[in-house]
Amino acid sequence: MPANRFNAFTAYGVGIGLRIPHYDHILGKKPAVDWFEIISENYMVDGGRPLAVLDQILEQYRVVQHGVSMYFGNAARPNREHLKKLKALTKRTQTPWLSDHLCWGSVDGRFTHDLLPMPYTWEAVEWTARNIREVQDFTGIPVAVENVSSYVEFHASEMTEWEFLNEVVERADCGILLDVNNIYVSSKNHTFDPYVYLDAVPAHRVAQIHIAGHTKFKKYLLDTHDHPVLDPVWKMYAHAIARTGRTATLLEWDDHIPSFGEVHAEALKANNFLPHAKALAA
C-alpha cells in the first residue's frame, strides 16, 4: 500500500521544502521534484511576492502544507483568524493533507515562535486531541501531527512521548508526520532507545516522514536543519520505512541552505530505502 487515508491516499515520493534561496532556480530551471512542502504561515499573507511565487510553483508542482504555529497543544482553542487564513490557503494549494506539530507555543496571545514540548499528561492528551479535531473539521483536510525534538522533560508527565503521541492521534483520529531526526535528537537528550519509540508508532497512521540534519553540542543535540542527514538517522529512516511501507518523505534544510542541487541530491538518497522507488521512476 503506497498511502493511507491520512495523506488522502496519494502516492507522493521524495520532496523538499520550498525555500526562498531556491526560488529563482526552481522557477527558471523547473527541475523534476516529486513535491514541495511549504511553510503555511509564509504564504498566509494577502498579496505580494510570496503568493505570486507560490502560484507559479503550483502551476508546475504538487505542494503540501506544513504549519509551524497552530500549536495543537496550547491550553486554548485554535485561533479562528489563523484557521480562516489556513483554510483559504488550502483552497489555493489543494494540499492533500496538512501537518503541524505536536507542541504548544503561545499563551494569552503572546507567541514564542518555537515548538515547545508537551507535558505528557492526560489533560494534555484531551486538549490536544480536541484542538486537532477542530482544525481537521474546520479545514476538511486530513491532519498529520509531527513529533518535535525536545530539550526538556516535565515533572508532570504521566507517560512516555510515544505513548502520548499514540493517545492523541487515536483520540483525534489523525495522521502522524513522523520526524525520525526529531526522535533521534530527543533520544539522545533524554536517554531513551529511539527504536522503542519507532516500534510503538502506529504505522497505519504515518502520513509523511521528515528527515533532517542536526548539530551536536557538548551536552545535548540541537535540531538545526542545517546539515545533511546523519547516518544514525538514515538507519532509523530505513527502520521506519520497513514498518510503514512507501511513505511520502521530505528533507528539511532551513539554515545555511546550500544550492538547490545539493539539497535535492540529499533528499533523493531516501529513494535508496523506499520500496519500489526504482520501479515507480522507470
Binding site: 496550547n74 499563551v107 507535558p119 499528561t121 489533560e123 486538549w127 508532570a156
Partner: peptide, 9 residues
Amino acid sequence: AASGLAELQ
C-alpha cells in the same frame, strides 16, 4: 509539580 497545562504553559 503542577499538573495544570495552562499553569505550566
